[in-house]
């Protein structure tokens, strides 16, 4: 491997300048009838200022739980953060009081969600919902906030902002609503935006428009973004770094260019094959056999082993840890693809 330039090198493991957000060994467990069940296990990652981290995985991989847990948005009677920390601005978000956390939610870290249809309050006007965070966090008066709402709607590409402000969510299309959500998230100029599958519920053309909007806003405002998606194609267009998740664990972390050049984890390889087939529009799609195991029936070893073409007895002993395999790259696999020199000490 040639020495990477500063631009190419993934900052995931770069320690010299402190990242905007650092997640350390985060585990979240759900309360179920059969006791606590781990939804995500020992997840660690970093988001440097001004960069985009893509978190990729199938449904049930724990990517949305990760996103929601950063701001502690899962009610405590449903799930709890069992261990780990989320460092942001020198403070551990998992240890803040609810009151302190409220000052970060919406102001320093904002979120947009998968379902623009249901994410907006159906009986409040668009303007009122957009004004709310600014009145709350920035102490703006209604008139001042309204002027800013107009600018924001213009910024996210909604024509006739003055008219749209008086309308209600059901009068807007899905794409428009997602633009409103983005405007709302950006209203207090947050440092970090968490986007949980922001385009999944939209049709293909709208998806592309929303992604373009997010990308241009990111570069204009120097925003950091955590982008949760099941679509590696989206990550390829948009993210700087990527984390692949499977059955509640991070199984691979790398710079986007790296992972597309050479995936290390067999699961990542499988995902990439599907994307490649889609783009080649060949007749037969490759797919990964089987489904993600449910959190309460995880195998003792690597969770992907039952579906993995490369698995052997070494894989079923215990879950392989996420270990460095090259500078700026980590993978949780005993026999990573394309790195024959590497053998994890399992």
């Amino acid at each position: 491997m040639t020495p990477a330039t500063d631009h190419e090198l993934s900052p995931v493991l770069r320690k010299q300048d402190a990242p905007l957000l650092r997640v350390e060994n985060l585990s979240v467990a759900f309360h179920t009838r059969n006791g606590l069940v781990r939804a995500i296990e020992e997840v660690s990652f970093e988001v440097p200022a001004g960069k985009v981290l893509g978190i990729v995985g199938e449904s049930g991989s724990g990517k949305s739980v990760t996103a929601l847990s950063l701001l502690r948005l899962i009610p405590s009677e449903i799930a709890e953060i069992s261990s780990g920390s989320v460092w942001f601005g020198g403070r551990d978000l998992t240890r803040l009081s609810e009151r302190e956390l409220r000052r970060i939610r919406g102001r320093e870290i904002a979120m947009i969600f998968q379902e623009p249809m249901t994410s907006l309050n159906p009986i409040a006007s668009v303007g009122a919902q957009l004004r709310e965070p600014m009145q709350l966090h920035l102490g703006m008066k209604a008139a001042e906030a309204s002027r800013r709402v107009e600018e924001l709607l213009d910024l996210v590409g909604i024509p006739q902002p003055r008219k749209r402000m008086t309308q209600y969510p059901h009068e807007l299309s899905g794409g428009m609503r997602q633009r409103v959500m983005i405007a709302m998230a950006l209203s207090c100029e947050p440092k970090l935006l968490i986007a949980d599958e922001p385009t999944t519920a939209l049709d293909v053309t709208t998806q592309a428009q929303i992604l373009d909007l997010l990308r241009s806003l990111q570069s204009r405002l120097g925003l950091s973004i955590i982008l949760i998606t099941h679509d590696l194609g989206v990550v390829a267009q948009f993210a700087d770094n990527v984390q692949v998740m499977y059955a509640g664990r991070a199984i691979e972390q790398a710079a986007v260019a790296e992972i597309f050049r050479q995936p290390a984890h067999p699961y990542t390889e499988g995902l990439l094959k599907i994307v490649a087939d889609l783009e080649a529009e060949c007749g037969r799609l490759s797919s990964i056999e089987g489904t993600v195991p449910a959190p309460h029936e995880l195998p003792p070893g690597c969770a992907f082993a039952p579906r993995c073409p490369r698995s052997d007895t070494a894989c079923t002993a215990s879950p392989p840890p996420l270990s460095p395999i090259s500078p700026g790259r980590r993978c949780a696999c005993v026999r990573p693809v394309g790195f024959p020199q590497f053998r994890a000490s399992a």
Partner: peptide
């Protein structure tokens, strides 16, 4: 249970709000 309640919490509103 509605999603917009999560949105409202993510905005930074207090439980009562």
């Amino acid at each position: 249970r509605e999603q917009f309640v999560v949105t409202a919490i993510a905005k930074g509103l207090s439980g009562r709000q």
